[in-house]
């Protein structure tokens, strides 16, 4: 499927230095790649490092407190070594991002048209009139009714679903090669979520852009992603093609997650629970970070950090007990 990936992350490590001298190990040795036209789901619970990873790709982490190492290769750039000026040219252009909260990521004092036009003029230049026409076209593409009229409205006049469409239109303004969507539908009602997911599928098919979708919702992952990376406590614990992840997960954390969701397509008397708590990331455990909560734990798990091993082609697990089928047969 992949010839040469569009974006390739190698050994990404991110540490935050707090004011009190404390270090938080937010992301550790993350390797990821996404091919043109593919959608990667980045899944995990609060604080697992999924959003921090995406902010690192966008170059949006605070320079004073975030210490970043590794490499993020995108096109011909290493994004971690790219000067700010070049990054500004890339962002909104070839790299675009959609955030969870459309209410706070739009400027309330500018019309939606002004905000989209600003992006187009900044990256593409040309006349304001042409940019406006393109903005109307974009609003039409994300199915905003009567875009000629809507373009002059302020964000507060739009509903949540409409605002998220505007955010998507803005992200698409310069035909990005990579779109990062951070919980794009979490703030929306289910019927609107279904509309936005459908829209993302449609746009992906039309533009061929690669998408990194960050979410905690495994249903959303199953519906739109080709490949999934599960993160836990700053590390990728499992990576697999979407079908395999849902049918034969190879990391106990993934098993726990899949078992803990109530499902419409399956009846469970009791939901699985993952006992215990996420480790304190100021002092991550020496061995496997999930060991303290893992029902399959061995002494060896606690002693050394487990490597990411390939259990079948394209399926990686950071668990020394994988393949897990051995444990239940």
């Amino acid at each position: 499927m992949s010839v040469s990936p569009l974006i390739e992350i190698r050994d990404l490590r991110i540490r935050f230095h707090g004011d009190d001298g404390r270090i938080t190990y937010a992301v550790d040795s993350v390797d990821l790649s996404v091919a043109n036209g593919a959608t990667l789901g980045l899944v995990g619970e609060s604080g697992c490092g999924k959003s921090v990873t995406s902010l690192a790709i966008m170059g949006l982490l605070p320079k004073q407190s975030a210490e970043i190492s590794g490499a993020i290769r995108f096109d011909d750039f290493d994004l971690l070594k790219t000067p700010d000026q070049t990054l500004r040219d890339l962002r909104g252009n070839r790299l675009a991002m959609i955030f969870q909260e459309p209410m706070t990521s739009l400027n309330p004092s500018l019309t939606i048209g002004d905000q989209i036009i600003e992006t187009i003029l900044r990256h593409r230049g040309g006349s304001r009139r042409n940019a406006r026409e393109r903005a109307i076209e974009l609003l039409r593409r994300v199915h905003i009714p009567s875009p000629e009229r809507r373009i002059d409205e302020y964000p507060h006049k739009l509903s949540g679903g409409m605002r998220q469409r505007v955010m998507i239109a803005m992200a698409l303004a310069c035909d990005p090669r990579l779109l990062i969507a951070d919980e794009p539908t979490t703030a929306l009602d289910v019927t609107l979520q279904a509309q936005i997911l459908e829209l993302m599928r449609e746009l992906k098919a039309a533009s061929g852009a690669a998408i990194i979708l960050i979410t905690h919702d495994l249903g959303v992952v199953a519906e739109v992603c080709d490949e999934v990376a599960v993160m836990y406590a700053g590390e990728i614990v499992e990576r697999a093609p979407v079908d395999e992840l849902f049918s034969a997960p190879q990391h106990p954390y993934t098993v726990g997650l899949l078992g803990s969701i109530p499902r419409l397509d399956h009846r469970a008397e009791q939901l699985a629970t993952i006992e215990g708590m996420v480790p304190n990331m100021a002092q991550p455990p020496a061995g496997c970070r999930f060991a303290a909560r893992c029902p399959f734990v061995l002494d060896a798990c606690i002693k050394a950090p487990p490597p990411l091993i390939e259990t079948s082609p394209g399926h990686l697990s950071r668990c020394i007990r994988a393949p897990l089928e051995r444990l239940v047969s």
Binding site: A194, E223, L258, I261
Partner: peptide, 10 residues
Amino acid sequence: SAIPLPQPHA
């Protein structure tokens, strides 16, 4: 029908 199912290719 709007609820995404945790079942790829459902």
